[in-house]
């Protein structure tokens, strides 16, 4: 069954809920590793962070894009069935909408967290 027809829940997955936080975690990990390797291997202790900042900007754009797509899909789930049935109802449609709601909220949180991580390199411009 497709997500648009939630009567059969056999192929529903909770991984959808954690997709946005995973984007945030991946963004943090890759940004951290990039800056650490850049400063330790290439730029040196007092070197410029410019290239690493560009890379982090690219990671941030990719992460926010991914989180945006997840949020869009979550919004569609949340609105499924006209959005009239209570999303905490003990029915397949209620659970479908609940997953959409939870994913949407986590997407918002992940987007803010990703932006906060990226803010660091807006202000820190060298490896010192």
């Amino acid at each position: 069954m497709s997500p648009e027809a939630p009567d059969d829940e056999s192929n529903q997955s909770l991984w959808f809920v954690v997709a946005a936080p995973l984007c945030w975690a991946a963004h943090f990990l890759v940004s951290y590793a990039t800056v650490a390797v850049w400063c330790e291997r290439y730029a040196g202790r007092d070197g410029s962070l410019y290239q690493a900042r560009v890379a982090v900007a690219a990671y941030t754009a990719a992460a926010l894009g991914g989180i945006g797509l997840i949020a869009l899909a979550a919004w569609r789930r949340y609105q499924h069935g006209g959005g009239t049935e209570a999303f905490d109802a003990d029915t397949p449609l209620g659970r479908h909408r609940f997953i959409g709601s939870a994913t949407l909220l986590l997407s918002a949180l992940s987007a803010v967290a990703t932006a906060y991580s990226a803010l660091t390199v807006v202000f820190i411009r060298d490896c010192h």
Binding site: D46, A108, V112, Y116, L119, T120, V122, F123, I124, R125, H128
Partner: peptide, 26 residues
């Protein structure tokens, strides 16, 4: 519960981060 705390936290974070370059400068 969400928007105002986010705005307040963002303002405090930006202010705190803006202090860092001077504090860690050699």
């Amino acid at each position: 519960g969400a928007l105002v705390p986010t705005v307040v936290l963002t303002a405090l974070l930006v202010y705190g981060l803006a202090l860092l370059p001077e504090l860690v400068a050699p």
